[in-house]
């Protein structure tokens, strides 16, 4: 796969980015669904605070988010030191890049899922309850199938965002080839090398291509599921 198009170093960056984005998306999906549900369906003191917290990475300078991650999940960070005891390390590892990508992509994922949850008519869930379905069964058999397009759209959007994450990642886990040097970090590193414009251009095209594929896939998937969920004739 690597030979004709990409040098081993380039392929390493692309493969790492794909792995980081996949893990970031899949690992944050359950939490994203839970947070979206709480924000869409529950009113409680602190609702606005939680909403703000979730959206913060969207507004904050990425370097600040990365620095806060470093303070929290770094080797000497409050949570990082504790997790170190279980052998879980984020600092300067690809897992750290995945964490940074997940945090940065989280608002997009939550937003998409929350919008689809708010579009579900609660009276359908009520009807399911009167038919004898417990709240868990109502969620699994009515709510979940109906919000599937939103979950898919949110996941793919988060994936695309994770692929492109740069500021928080490089601040938190630096740019170590083969470990934390994702596609954007690789492009940035090459830009510092004189005469590497050709290699930069190829990586840029790869980044553009991957993003386009993700967006087109997201659109196509959500259209297909929307058709199914809206009900057929």
């Amino acid at each position: 796969m690597s030979a004709p198009f990409l040098s081993p170093a380039e392929w390493q960056a692309v493969a790492l980015s794909l792995r980081v984005a996949t893990v970031a998306t899949l690992a944050s999906l359950p939490l994203g669904l839970a947070v979206a549900w709480v924000l869409a369906r529950r009113r409680f003191p602190g609702h606005a605070l939680l909403n703000g917290l979730v959206h913060l990475p969207l507004i904050l300078p990425p370097v600040v988010t990365g620095y806060l991650l470093l303070l929290t999940f770094g080797r000497r960070g409050a949570v990082g030191e504790w997790l170190d005891g279980f052998g879980i390390v984020f600092a300067f590892r690809w897992t750290g890049a995945a964490l940074a990508a997940a945090v940065m992509a989280f608002p997009l994922m939550v937003r998409a899922i929350r919008l689809s949850l708010e579009a579900v008519d609660p009276r359908l869930e009520q009807a399911a309850g009167t038919l004898g379905a417990s709240p868990v069964r109502v969620f699994l058999t009515v709510t979940l199938p109906l919000i599937l397009p939103g979950i898919l759209a949110g996941a793919i959007l988060a994936f695309a965002k994770a692929m492109g994450e740069f500021g928080a990642t490089i601040t938190f886990v630096a740019s170590i080839p083969g470990e934390t040097q994702t596609l954007p970090s690789a492009i940035y590193a090459l830009l510092q090398v004189p005469g590497a414009e050709g290699r930069v251009a190829r990586l840029v095209w790869i980044a553009v291509g991957l993003s386009m594929v993700a967006l087109i896939l997201s659109e196509a998937l959500s259209r297909a599921v929307t058709r199914r969920v809206r009900g057929r004739r």
Binding site: D121, R123, A127, T130, L131, G132, P135, L146, V229, G231
Partner: peptide, 20 residues
């Protein structure tokens, strides 16, 4: 007793059928 344990069937003005 919550609705799903009452065994009371409901038919609403809007039929509320499951679209999926």
């Amino acid at each position: 007793v919550p609705p799903h344990r009452r065994r009371i069937g409901c038919v609403f003005q809007d039929a509320r059928l499951f679209p999926h």
